[in-house]
Amino acid sequence: MTNPSAERSWPLWEVFTQPADGAPHEHAGSVHATDAEHALQNARDVYARRNEAVSLWVVPSAAITASTPEDMGPFFDPANDKAYRHPQFYKVPKGVKVF
């Protein structure tokens, strides 16, 4: 019998599912798998047992770079003072009902 503490874990993959044709891929969860093909098969068995997906992406978890919660303010605030990017910023003359 193998010494369980010496056993190496299978790498972690993030799974993205496309629920229907034309919809974007969305993060569904993760699976452990030895390689990409294995990850796709595991992702199908874990996240698409009921036709929840018409397409799957698997990405090594370590390959994902994400913004950090600490960044949240400074990283996104350039958008805060640009109200002119929204249609509500503009006045439409009275009398125009449907624009």
Binding site: P4, S9, G29, V46
Partner: peptide, 27 residues
């Protein structure tokens, strides 16, 4: 029964986001 196994995997994967390894939990 296959669903139950899948549910275990969903929740282990959720638990791993807290910085713990699944293998450790199974052990």
């Amino acid at each position: 029964v296959q669903d139950e196994g899948g549910h275990g995997l969903y929740i282990y994967c959720g638990t791993e986001t807290l910085g713990v390894d699944r293998q450790e939990l199974v052990q």
